Simulated assay, not measured.
Amino acid sequence: MTLHITCAALDAIVRRAHAEHPIESCGMVTANIGLALAQRVIPMTNQAASETFFRFDSRDQLRVYRDLNARDEECRAVYHSHTASEAYPSKDDVDYAGQPEVHYLIVSTWAQTKVPVRSFRIIDGHVTEESIVVVDAA
């Protein structure tokens, strides 16, 4: 699998991750139903306000999903940052990944990171890294 995302969306996610460091940033990236290109970033509040864990506010998440339905969009990717480790799913990330159709995008803001942005599919506890295609959509 491959995550297709606009340059503007990826830039916004990376900027927000660095701006919110050392707290993990999080949110969603949406696409029009039936299209593969992830393009609209929806920043969410990390209710956990943690340096090592993120959790969407359930009321905020419900509001976002209602908005997606009204706009004929779907969640294409869930993103969050890692502030003190590589961009690779933690045990908690794997345990809480409940949407097998969604890409899980991780941005590392850790100074020693080797690859700062990576995307994964997490299905039934199995992690598979996938490629990212960045599209310069006008």
Score class of each variant (00 low, 15 high):
M1L: 00
L3Q: 08
L3A: 06
H4T: 12
I5H: 00
I5V: 04
T6H: 02
C7K: 15
A8F: 11
A12Q: 15
I13E: 03
I13L: 02
R15S: 09
R15P: 10
R15H: 14
A17M: 04
A19Q: 15
H21M: 06
H21F: 12
H21Y: 09
P22N: 05
E24Q: 13
S25Q: 11
C26Y: 03
M28K: 12
M28H: 15
A31Y: 07
N32C: 11
I33L: 15
L35I: 00
A36Y: 14
L37P: 06
L37T: 06
Q39L: 12
Q39D: 14
Q39W: 02
R40L: 08
R40E: 12
V41A: 09
V41C: 14
I42K: 09
I42Y: 11
M44K: 01
M44C: 03
S50W: 07
S50D: 12
T52Y: 09
F53G: 04
F54K: 02
F54C: 04
R55M: 08
F56Q: 00
F56D: 03
D57V: 04
D57R: 02
D57L: 05
R59C: 11
R59H: 09
D60V: 01
Q61P: 04
L62W: 08
L62C: 13
R63K: 06
R66T: 15
D67G: 10
L68C: 15
L68T: 01
A70C: 15
A70W: 14
R71V: 02
R71P: 00
C75E: 14
C75A: 15
C75H: 13
A77W: 10
H80Y: 02
H80D: 03
H82D: 01
H82E: 01
T83K: 01
S85I: 09
E86H: 03
A87C: 11
Y88I: 05
Y88D: 05
P89Y: 08
S90L: 07
S90W: 07
K91E: 08
D92W: 03
D92F: 01
D92M: 07
D93E: 06
V94C: 01
D95S: 08
Y96A: 10
A97G: 09
G98C: 01
G98F: 00
G98R: 00
Q99V: 12
P100R: 05
E101F: 10
E101W: 08
E101G: 13
V102S: 11
H103K: 06
Y104E: 07
L105D: 10
V107E: 01
S108Y: 02
T109G: 11
W110C: 02
W110Y: 12
K114M: 05
K114G: 15
V117E: 09
R118I: 01
R118D: 06
S119N: 07
S119I: 03
F120R: 00
F120S: 00
F120V: 02
I122V: 08
I122E: 03
D124M: 13
G125T: 01
G125K: 02
V127D: 13
I132Q: 10
I132H: 11
I132E: 03
V134I: 14
V135L: 00
V135W: 05
A138E: 13
A138W: 09
